[in-house]
């Protein structure tokens, strides 16, 4: 069937195997970037400043790796008709969504390094933790999308709930920043920018989860 598949563009098994491996790599990069972001915020909060630069460069490397995986998937797999066109389109959209989570982690860590000399409010640590949980759940949602729609949907619903908790924390932080006189205008502006960027990790995880749920609902 393989030769037949190649002639009519119905999918090459070797390419599909490569695509599965690349998707797994992207999934790991996503989770790893978010976990490192969480560690980075923890260290910043605890005043352990010496590893922050190292963590930043590791997250940036992960983001580059995710971009490479995305390019490789597009150039070597999707454009070679490894799957039927509808399936290619859906997988590509999934990859784009996943990559956007890693991008968000990179943006967040860069912003943290900008303001690393200031001591962060505790809520920022909480938001980073929620983001990390979201990506952890997302990794499972992606995994189950291919084998069990029901479980996959369950994980995406969990992501929604955790993202809501992250949003609540973010508003709690804003309330604190704008009402507590101990924060200067510079600090308000800085912590707001950092928290919004960290929150983006959870938001983009939720967007990816929504896309996964759309696929699962469409096909189940």
């Amino acid at each position: 069937m393989d030769t037949f598949s190649r002639i009519f563009g119905l999918g090459d098994k070797d390419l599909q195997k490569q695509a599965d491996e690349l998707l797994l790599r992207l999934s790991k990069a996503l989770q790893s970037a978010s976990a490192k972001l969480h560690v980075c915020v923890d260290d910043w909060d605890d005043g352990k400043m010496k590893h922050l630069d190292e963590l930043e460069s590791e997250i940036i490397s992960l983001e580059r790796e995710a971009d490479e995986v995305k390019e490789e998937l597009y150039e070597k797999i999707f454009s070679k008709r490894a799957y039927l066109p509808q399936q290619t389109q859906e997988r590509y959209q999934l990859v784009q969504h996943m990559d956007s989570v890693v991008d968000a982690a990179e943006n967040a860590v860069r912003m943290i390094l900008v303001g690393s000399n200031f001591r962060p409010p505790s809520e920022i640590k909480g938001i980073a933790e929620k983001g990390w949980i979201c990506t952890d759940l997302l990794q499972d949602a992606v995994k189950y999308l291919f084998t069990d729609f029901k479980k996959s949907v369950e994980y995406t619903l969990k992501i929604d709930r955790v993202r809501e908790e992250a949003r609540d924390l973010s508003f709690k932080l804003l309330k604190k920043l704008f009402n507590d006189k101990k924060y200067s205008a510079k600090e308000v502006s800085l912590f707001r920018a950092i928290s919004e960027r960290i929150l983006q990790v959870a938001i983009r995880s939720e967007d990816t989860g929504d896309f996964i749920r759309t696929l699962a609902v469409k096909y189940s």
């Binding site: 189950y144 999308l145 291919f146 084998t147 996959s152 696929l215 096909y219």
Partner: peptide
């Protein structure tokens, strides 16, 4: 079908 792999 259970998942995307089955559907595909």
């Amino acid at each position: 079908v259970q998942g995307l792999t089955d559907l595909e």
